[in-house]
Computed example of a mutant assay.
Amino acid sequence: MKNTSLSAAMLQAKCPRCRKGDLFPTSVFSYTKLSEINGKCPECEATITPEPDFFYGAMYISYAFSVALMVNVSILVTYFFDRPDTMVYVWTVLAANILLVPLMLRYSKVLYLYGLGKLSYDPDALKK
């Protein structure tokens, strides 16, 4: 059985304990059920949500993603257009946020769970 690396498991939004089960009931790129996360891993039955409001802290990571996106989009707009109108900045940042909201919300939860969750990798988790 091949072990999944930490970075691959995080990119694929897999369970931190077994790195096989999905964290989300729908695709990471889906706009449906954005805030829903599986309570237990479908593979190893590990409790993914340790307490009811655990993922509220992920909002700080999501906010950082939004700020980074706003700064990068603003830099790109300034680079490609010579002194654009303020509304060009507003509309491009808004469009980028709408397009990337599923990724930012979901990966903020993934990073929060891997960083502050109490689950650690157990290669034998599926055998138990």
Rank of each mutant, 00 (worst) to 15 (best):
A96G: 06
T78N: 13
T47M: 14
A95H: 08
F65I: 08
G21D: 00
Q12M: 05
V28D: 02
F81W: 12
T49R: 15
V110C: 03
N72F: 14
K33P: 00
Y121C: 00
L99V: 13
N97D: 12
F54T: 03
A96K: 02
K20V: 15
T92C: 13
S5M: 05
F24A: 10
R17A: 05
V77Y: 01
S108F: 09
L23Y: 01
S66N: 10
C41N: 04
S66T: 09
Y60K: 06
Q12V: 03
R106I: 01
Y112M: 07
V101G: 00
Q12I: 02
L34C: 05
V28W: 03
M1H: 09
T86M: 15
S108Y: 09
G115F: 07
V110A: 04
S7N: 12
E45I: 05
L34M: 10
R83Q: 14
D22C: 05
T26H: 13
L103Y: 15
D85E: 14
L113W: 01
K14G: 03
V73D: 06
A64R: 10
M87G: 10
R106F: 04
M70E: 00
V88D: 04
V88R: 03
Y31H: 10
L105H: 08
Y121G: 01
E45V: 09
Y112Q: 07
F55C: 05
E43W: 07
G21Y: 03
A9E: 02
D82M: 10
F80S: 11
L34V: 00
G21F: 00
D122Q: 08
L99Q: 08
T26L: 14
I98S: 12
K118P: 01
K33Q: 12
S5I: 05
C44N: 10
D53C: 00
P84K: 06
P16D: 01
N3W: 00
I98T: 12
P16H: 02
A125R: 01
D122Y: 04
L23C: 04
G39C: 08
Y112S: 06
I75F: 15
K14E: 07
L116Q: 10
K14D: 04
V77D: 02
L103E: 09
A13L: 03
V28T: 08
Y89K: 05
L126D: 05
N97Q: 13
R19L: 04
F65E: 02
A58C: 13
L105P: 03
